[in-house]
């Protein structure tokens, strides 16, 4: 089986400072990978390098494209990479405002990716947008409302709908549940889990919330100071952490 995404030796430096160093892993279709670590450990840098938002200084990110098979997305041309970014890839930002157009209606937000890949039939676009709003549990009657009138949880769900409407195969998530209260978090996690399983999505999810990875991730990488210190199956890492930092991380979680 060919990995959907094969990451080899990715490093990113900010001057003399290390962003992330020598990260390698394979992600297979249908798999969800969690990346955890404290603030400043290089999680988001890594995610941005993988998603093509930041150029890495070293290494390869090989993605199994639909048409041409495995391609290195770091060296591919910018138009190709941006095309991937609006078809096969999706990026869910921590703050919905970064991923949404706040001045455009919910339907327009969901429809943007469809129009970006060439859909030119208003009725079809609107139909798909409404359908997707319902799939993320937003009432279809709010299709013409602006996201500014939505609650934080709804904005985050709208952002997910907007990303998944073109049927991507790989979703990057940067702390998708950050800044939401726990009950809203739980609903969102439930929704994401359902969508990931139904659509057979692969996902790479950055978070510092171990409960989130426990629920969603098949595999886990623990990062510290830009390096991966431990990797393995989620339950294995969380229940039997080997590295001193992983042990600290797991033991830091408050038990209610």
């Amino acid at each position: 089986m060919i990995p959907l995404l094969s990451v080899q030796g990715i490093s990113k430096y900010y001057g003399a400072h290390i962003g992330c160093k020598d990260v390698s892993f394979d992600l297979y279709p249908g798999e969800v990978m969690g990346i955890v670590g404290e603030s400043g450990s290089g999680k988001s840098t890594l995610l941005n390098c993988l998603a093509g938002h930041l150029p890495p200084d070293e290494g390869q990110v090989v993605f199994d494209t639909r048409t041409d098979g495995p391609r290195d997305t770091v060296t591919m041309s910018e138009p190709e990479r941006r095309m991937l970014g609006r078809t096969d890839w999706a990026f869910v930002h921590q703050h919905a405002r970064d991923g949404l157009r706040m001045g455009v209606s919910a339907g327009g937000n969901v429809g943007e990716r469809l129009m970006a890949v060439g859909e030119r039939n208003y009725g079809d676009i609107r139909g798909k947008a409404t359908d997707w709003l319902e799939r993320v549990e937003i009432d279809a009657s709010r299709v013409d409302d602006r996201p500014i009138t939505f609650s934080g949880g709804m904005q985050q769900r709208l952002q997910i709908a907007r990303n998944l409407v073109t049927g991507p195969r790989l979703v990057f998530m940067d702390e998708p549940t950050g800044g939401l209260d726990v009950s809203v978090q739980a609903r969102l996690l439930d929704l994401i889990r359902g969508l990931v399983r139904d659509m057979g999505l692969s996902a790479i999810m950055v978070t510092h919330d171990l409960a989130v990875v426990r629920l969603l991730a098949d595999r886990l990488m623990v990062m510290k100071s830009g390096r991966v210190v431990e990797a393995g199956l989620t339950d294995q890492v969380l229940d039997d952490p080997q590295h001193a930092y992983s042990q600290l991380l797991v033991s830091s979680v408050l038990q209610v």
């Binding site: 910018e78 138009p79 941006r82 609006r86 157009r101 455009v104 209606s105 339907g107 327009g108 429809g111 943007e112 990716r113 129009m115 970006a116 890949v117 060439g118 030119r120 208003y122 676009i125 609107r126 299709v143 013409d144």
Partner: peptide, 17 residues
């Protein structure tokens, strides 16, 4: 890069409103 999907978002907004 000839990415003009956004232009249609404006027209979409017009029709929806």
């Amino acid at each position: 890069l000839e990415e003009y999907g956004l232009m249609h978002v404006k027209l979409y907004e017009d029709i929806s409103r």
